[in-house]
Write a protein that binds this DNA or RNA. Structure first.
Lengths: 193, 193
DNA sequence: ATTCAAATAGTCAATTTTGACTATTTTGAA
DNA sequence: TTCAAAATAGTCAAAATTGACTATTTGAAT
């Protein structure tokens, strides 16, 4: 039983090969350009998966013999690969793939820091989210295929920004209440000896 | 330069050890119970990371000698480990960690299916999201620590559900318009030979 | 004509991850 | 008390992942 991401990556490669026989470089460039928002598939991993799918009989390759230029492998889908594509697509669409937020670990230990420092750090995080949102707004609308994925990523980032803003509001309110009590701002926490 | 998830997992282990010396089993049970919504850290990986952090001088362990019961390692934080905790915490909080949705790969190839089948499959996905939301609503509010992470996961799942509902609405509208044109529902697509 | 950068096409060693496994101790039911 | 299941504590071989590397070809500037 492979991981869900593993299956998704295989699905991506099969889906791209379904458009027609392709060589490895084109696959990797396409993934890095048009799927950069939803796939973290590095080049060596792509070649590894292609080899593995070849063993499963889903893809084959043959060397081309260009009159000029580098010799290279032309990968193509087999009928079994076409079948696998449909199965993986149906599974991918019908399953929910849980998300783990690496950033939530830090939030779990937020109370180890002073509210002031926590707020400053999270504001940096929020700025990065907003920068990413801006970048995606200005991104050229990837024709058809990845459009839904792009819309999803935008929607997600908007939700992330809203949620972080809410957290920051809570923190700021707390800081204000502390200032009221003590009459002066709290110093930043120093790492205990 | 380690991966962000890697750093987050180290941060988690350090943060737990910061509460006091602990043996491996307790760490793993805690992670599986209280951090299951934000960390995908398996037992062998946890032991691997503990060993690696021991090499970095961040943690040490000594065997205990219980009068009865299994002998086991008691892991504890070194001063260097305490220092590393602060560094990793600050980095984790101030950085945004991009998310890759495995489910977006399938969405990119949605047009390979009939709108009818696509709708049915995505409705299954939505049902799973709603089930997970319900489970999290009824989850016992993990005391303090992971509360923010839980809130985040809830917020995220609500956004996911809303977005999928929007996609499904678009699909359904499209299906209706097709029915208007043809006067009868489209048959489910058959996998091409 | 030469040279330097970029595009093309992958490979490999080292690291990371995990499913499956071993082994002992405690608990609780019959 | 006896036996089985669950809790406890970790290990290991196999698989997956990737940073860094090699090597050739093309394009463009000089």
């Amino acid at each position: 039983m492979p991981l869900p991401e593993d299956e998704a990556n295989e699905l991506l490669l099969l889906g791209l090969l379904r458009r027609g026989p392709t060589h490895g470089y084109a696959l990797n460039v396409l993934i890095a350009h048009d799927w950069d928002t939803c796939a973290a598939l590095k080049k060596p991993t792509a070649y590894y998966l292609l080899k593995r799918m070849a063993q499963k009989g889903w893809v084959t390759w043959n060397k081309d013999h260009p009159a000029r230029g580098l010799q290279r492998r032309i990968y193509r889908l087999t009928p079994e690969g076409e079948h696998a594509f449909w199965q993986l697509l149906r599974k991918n669409l019908s399953d929910y793939h849980p998300i783990y937020f690496a950033g939530d670990i830090g939030l779990s230990f937020l109370d180890a820091l002073s509210p002031h420092e926590a707020r400053d750090l999270l504001q940096k995080r929020l700025a990065q989210i907003q920068a990413r949102r801006l970048a995606l707004e200005n991104a050229p609308a990837h024709a058809g295929a990845a459009a839904l994925a792009l819309e999803h990523q935008r929607y997600h980032l908007a939700a992330e920004a809203h949620w972080l803003e809410h957290v920051l509001e809570t923190l700021t309110t707390y800081i204000s209440s502390q200032e009221d009590i003590h009459g002066y701002p709290q110093p930043d926490s120093i790492e205990p000896a």
